[in-house]
Simulated scan of single mutants.
Amino acid sequence: MKAKFFKLLLPAFAIIMAVGMAFATEEANSTQTGYYNHPILGVQAIPTDCPETGQVLCMEGQWQVFKDPALTIPLYERFE
């Protein structure tokens, strides 16, 4: 009886937990497209999770990352 109870309860608990964790994720962790100006290749697009506000500039290697391809809106490092 005890084994049957656990065989039924454990998968049900795992499914409930997976659904609950899916709703617990933060939208802020989603990535956006950032742009940086490579001296040889020109403007390059990269995935980034850097926000538009902050104090430390977001960098890709040695190049600063921007939100738009015109390189006018800088992105900043995320500190939480």
Rank of each mutant, 00 (worst) to 15 (best):
Q32F: 07
A12Y: 01
A3I: 09
L57V: 09
L41V: 13
E26I: 13
L57Y: 13
A24N: 02
P74D: 02
C50L: 13
F23S: 05
K67R: 13
A18V: 02
P11L: 05
N37R: 14
A22I: 02
I46R: 01
M21P: 10
F23Q: 01
F66K: 00
L41H: 15
Q32L: 03
M59C: 14
K4Q: 12
A3T: 09
K4P: 08
F13G: 11
I40R: 03
A12M: 14
F23K: 12
V65F: 01
P39A: 13
Q32R: 06
K2T: 15
S30W: 09
G20L: 14
F23N: 07
A18L: 05
P39W: 10
M17T: 09
G54M: 12
T33A: 04
A45Q: 12
N37A: 10
E60K: 07
C58S: 01
Y36N: 00
F13V: 12
F13Y: 05
V56R: 09
A14W: 09
I16L: 14
G61P: 03
A14P: 06
A18T: 14
M1F: 02
K2I: 14
T25I: 12
L75R: 09
M1Q: 05
W63E: 02
G20P: 08
E80H: 03
K67Y: 00
Q62P: 00
L10A: 11
I15D: 02
F66P: 04
A70E: 13
D68E: 11
L9P: 06
L10S: 11
L75E: 03
Q62N: 15
E27L: 10
V56Y: 11
T33L: 07
Q55Y: 04
A3N: 12
